[in-house]
């Protein structure tokens, strides 16, 4: 039987996500949450996408900095693949958020500082993604993407987290003067599912990023071998 590398965190991810997925549906939550009602359970599914995205993008940022310090192919591949998975998680958060908003606020998009910040931030990361596909020279691509990533991550965090916190008005919970989930927390059990959910979903998407990174490294190695053998023949 083939063993999976780094199996410990993958098993951990599956157990924690399984727990949060199932227990999040069954747990007794406060009932006096206004228009949210039972959709407050989305806190265990929608919010971990964003928190996990921030953690994964932070990991990609660290990889980019290490790459600029000491360029190795592995660091570049891990930075780009972690960012790609972070973008995927961001879209999961965006679409679940739009669906939730449509059923709570009556509209999928409002001119809220949090939502506008996310729109601008996702545009920056799509620029990062596009940059990787528009430069042919692999080393130039890797260096440019790393430099770009070093700049956009702090900007992204300030756009989606700091600016909404500082804003005067926002209907999105957790920003400005709006409600916070701590105000609902009279039974004190939300965090028993919420924090594990953040950790579990982050680990699960790190697993996907690792799979993608290993595949990309395999492809690069194959390409290197081909160009090497061509070099010998010529």
């Amino acid at each position: 039987m083939l063993r999976i590398p780094n199996a410990w965190y993958k098993i951990l991810a599956v157990l924690i996500v399984g727990y949060s997925l199932i227990y999040g549906m069954l747990i007794n939550l406060p009932t006096d949450v206004g228009i949210l009602d039972e959709t407050i359970r989305n806190l265990f599914y929608h919010v971990p996408m964003w928190f996990g995205m921030m953690l994964i993008l932070a990991a990609a940022w660290v990889n980019s900095i290490i790459y600029l310090n000491k360029p190795t192919q592995k660091r570049d591949v891990y930075a780009t693949e972690l960012t790609n998975v972070g973008i995927l998680m961001g879209f999961c958060g965006l679409f679940t958020g739009m669906f939730w908003a449509y059923n709570t606020w009556g509209t999928p998009w409002t001119n809220d500082p949090k939502l506008n910040g996310v729109a601008a931030g996702m545009a920056m990361y799509l620029g990062y993604w596009l940059m990787g596909r528009s430069i042919n020279d692999p080393e130039k691509r890797a260096r440019l993407q790393a430099v770009f990533n070093v700049f956009i991550f702090p900007l992204f965090i300030s756009l989606i987290y700091v600016m909404p916190k500082l804003s005067q008005f926002s209907i999105h919970p957790g920003s400005g003067e709006s409600v916070n989930f701590k105000t609902y927390n009279n039974t004190n059990n939300i965090q028993h599912v919420f924090y594990p959910a953040v950790i579990g979903w982050t680990l699960l998407f790190v697993w996907i990023a690792e799979l993608r990174a290993r595949t990309t490294l395999l492809l690069y190695n194959k390409k290197n071998e081909e160009s090497f053998s061509k070099h010998i023949i010529s």
Partner: peptide, 29 residues
């Protein structure tokens, strides 16, 4: 909840199979 669990379990099994396949390719190199 049961359906959620089934979907999640199958996605995880798929990921495990994918991981093993990639490991096999890495070992063959």
């Amino acid at each position: 909840v049961g359906i959620l669990a089934i979907i999640f379990l199958l996605i995880v099994l798929y990921l495990i199979r994918l991981d093993r396949k990639i490991k096999q390719l890495e070992d063959n190199q």
